[in-house]
């Protein structure tokens, strides 16, 4: 291996690692707040990329139907809950929010799509469409199960994953997509070439990670999330709604996933079912952090990225084997270090 190749592989590893780090952070957050191991995290990546691709192709993304269907279901459940608790006056407002938002977005897409081809506009629309799916999914699937064991929540998460993969196939078809790049520029530093898309990925990931940090440290909602993650019962006692915390953490997870999808779209071909493996690699990173530590999870995810590009060079036939085997020594080390924390729940 020459120096040039080593640089290139490191670059590739860091780029993928940055994306996995985003996913790992979201996984840790969701697990800490809701105890859900969020298998569909990778599916949000795919939803983001596929939605952006269909916007760029000038179609109305099928994700809008999903948003409308989920919104309708959530609206219905919340409206019934309002009626039961005797707050009939709130029904109108609930339905307006849950159904009005998708419909307004629909109209907006209709109006804006023929007008502008701007990548930024498309990216914003993608975020507006995909991110609300996160809290809706929490409301529909996980909130009623909030008191269940980690295992039940995991099973529900797997069910959601399969449902999303099926819906992706139905809506977007089996064809792979590649979205337009943010920019095609290539920088040359010495003998080194750096594609600007890779820079974008690393920069946006870093910005998002810092933003998440500030959100947790400075914003009230962020602090509420952090408090719930530390101690659910305690947080509840001081007046933090666990439902709100759950929805919020799913919104953050969906946001992170969608951003990762928008970033990943131009550098690789994504298919309706690509999400699982991507999410799994983020999960390996999160496991390195014991599903609890944010910096360790991010470091683990970077390690996964570097290991992946290195093993692709040295032993491509065993690439996935090497990446996923990483989890075994980590689990061994963690089980020696800590006392059976898994069965606490």
């Amino acid at each position: 291996m020459t120096f040039d190749i080593a640089i290139l592989l490191t670059q590739d590893g860091l780029t993928n690692g940055a994306l996995y780090a985003l996913l790992a952070l979201a996984l840790v957050l969701v697990f800490a707040v809701t105890r859900v191991i969020f298998i569909p995290q990778g599916d949000f990546v795919v939803l983001g990329a596929l939605t952006l691709a269909s916007l760029q192709a000038g179609h109305l993304p099928p994700t809008l139907y999903l948003l409308l269907a989920l919104g309708g279901a959530v609206g219905l459940i919340d409206a019934v809950a309002c009626l039961r608790s005797g707050r009939a006056h709130a029904v109108g407002r609930v339905l307006l929010i849950e159904l009005g938002y998708p419909l307004a977005l629909w109209a907006l897409c209709h109006w804006l799509l023929p007008l502008s081809q701007s990548l930024w506009l498309h990216a914003l629309l993608t975020l507006a469409i995909v991110v609300p799916l996160g809290p809706s999914l929490y409301r529909l699937v996980f909130q009623p199960l909030a008191q269940s064991s980690v295992l039940v929540l995991l099973i529900a998460a797997i069910a959601v994953h399969f449902a999303l993969v099926g819906l992706n196939l139905l809506g977007f078809g089996p064809e792979g997509v590649r979205t337009a790049a943010f920019s095609d520029a290539v920088f040359e530093i010495g003998s080194m070439f750096i594609a600007s898309q890779n820079l974008w990925i690393v920069l946006v990931s870093a910005v998002l990670i810092v933003a998440l940090y500030l959100f947790f440290e400075r914003a009230l909602y962020g602090k509420a999330l952090l408090a719930t993650a530390f101690n659910r019962t305690g947080a509840r006692l001081v007046g933090i709604s666990p439902d709100l915390a759950g929805r919020l953490s799913f919104a953050v997870a969906a946001l992170v996933g969608t951003v990762a999808g928008i970033l990943m779209g131009p550098i690789t071909t994504l298919y309706y079912d690509s999400g699982f493996l991507i999410g799994l690699k983020g999960f390996v990173g999160a496991i390195v952090g014991g599903l609890a530590s944010y910096p360790l999870a991010a470091g683990g995810a970077l390690l996964v990225g570097l290991l992946e590009s290195g093993s692709a060079f040295y032993a491509s036939a065993f690439k996935e084997v090497i990446v996923f085997t990483l989890i075994i020594p980590v689990l061994l080390w963690r089980s020696l270090k800590s006392h059976d924390r898994g069965s606490e729940e």
Binding site: T269, S309, F313, S316, K319
Partner: peptide, 21 residues
């Protein structure tokens, strides 16, 4: 060189660099 990749892979830079080398 005999390089492999999976249908679902998102990057083949490592394999391609080895081939070009």
């Amino acid at each position: 060189a005999r390089e492999r990749y999976a249908r679902t892979d998102t990057s083949v830079i490592g394999q391609v660099m080895k081939i070009i080398a």
